[in-house]
């Protein structure tokens, strides 16, 4: 098992803020909108440096999505910022019609996704957003794993022409991906090569997968770990190549198992290479108040759950 050293833990939303600031300096067409959450979205540095390219919308997310769609007309690249819940479920129809169906170059940037939002509870902890967004034709769905990768993804999506959903979160997590690693949309990243099981993880579950890999290695299980930062388009080739080698798979995500990464992987495998698969995901329920760590443990989204799922998957191999 490879080692993944890191010097500090940081929040992915700060990676978004840093990426947005850099875009402000390098791409004059980038504009930003926010629905009364500039602090939470870490948009302050961009606003300070480029006040004329920032639009405060107030608590009116539907209007924000429509405005952003309109701002693409005339050549701007709008980045909208609010919590993941208000970036998706609250504005699904606006995204569907004015952004996705209209093919507009809007970047929907969503913080505080999933259970790790913590104490605010289920009203704010969306676990269905990946599903809603990936079902929209033309939509790209990205869920990076740490500060560096979120920053790189933020920069990369400005180069890509088309609607994107960029999902990140609130807590600090080990910042282990190389700062100079280029982000390629739709290209899975091999973290650790192994032969006994394929672990496909996205977002905050990538670090948990690494922790699980270490535990498994001590028990003599050689896990292949892949960072699926882009859920749509899914890197089917990388997934199939790995599963051909290992013969079983575990998917891990901070999302309902319905509609998430796991189901996307299952569809590919069902068509191309039927394989035992286990899901580390929320079991079709709402969250609740608690600390991020407590919630991840209670809802089965930590390294222990991944280790258990790996053993179930391996036991199902023919």
């Amino acid at each position: 098992m490879k080692d993944f050293p890191y010097s500090e833990s940081k929040d992915t939303r700060s990676g978004f803020g840093a990426g947005l600031l850099e875009l402000g300096r390098t791409n004059p067409n980038v504009v930003a909108l926010c629905a009364d959450l500039v602090g939470s979205l870490k948009m302050g540095d961009f606003i300070k440096e480029f006040p004329e390219r920032f639009f405060q919308v107030g608590i009116a997310e539907a209007n924000m999505i429509g405005l952003a769609a309109g701002m693409t007309i005339g050549g701007k690249i709008p980045f909208t910022g609010t919590f993941a819940n208000f970036s998706t479920g609250r504005v699904y129809d606006q995204i569907r019609q004015s952004v996705a169906y209209s093919g507009k170059n809007v970047k929907i940037c969503a913080s505080h996704a999933g259970l790790t939002l913590g104490e605010d509870g289920a009203t704010h902890q969306i676990l269905e957003d990946i599903g809603m967004m990936k079902m929209l034709p033309h939509m790209t769905v990205i869920n990076p794993c740490d500060f560096n990768q979120t920053k790189a993804a933020t920069i990369a999506i400005a180069e890509y022409e088309g609607p994107v959903y960029l999902r990140f979160g609130r807590p600090v997590v080990p910042n282990f991906t190389p700062a100079d690693q280029k982000f390629e949309i739709g290209k899975a990243l091999m973290l650790n090569e192994g032969k006994d099981v394929t672990i496909l993880a996205t977002g905050h579950l990538v670090w948990k997968a690494i922790l699980a890999g270490k535990i498994l290695a001590e028990q003599g299980i050689d896990a292949e770990i892949i960072n699926i930062h882009t859920i749509k388009p899914l890197d089917s080739e990388a997934i199939l190549a790995s599963v051909r080698k290992t013969g079983c798979v575990v998917t891990a995500e901070e999302h309902n198992y319905l509609g998430g990464l796991g189901e996307s992987v299952a569809r590919v495998l069902a068509q191309e290479l039927p394989t035992p698969q286990e899901f580390v995901a929320v079991n079709d329920t709402f969250g609740e108040s608690g600390t991020p760590d407590q919630l991840m443990e209670k809802y089965g989204l930590n390294e222990t759950s991944i280790v258990d799922a790996v053993k179930r998957a391996i036991s199902r191999k023919k």
Binding site: V31, E52, R53, F55, A62, N63, M64, I65, G66, L67, A68, A69, G70, M71, I73, G74, G75, K76, P78, D93, Q94, R96, Q97, S98, Y101, S102, K104
Partner: peptide, 27 residues
Amino acid sequence: IRIASGSLGQGPSVAIGAAQVKKLNND
């Protein structure tokens, strides 16, 4: 046609966004 419409209530937001970009572009 510059945007899809049909699900009601979305056009003013889109139009206002486009209007603000006209200002940014000195149009």
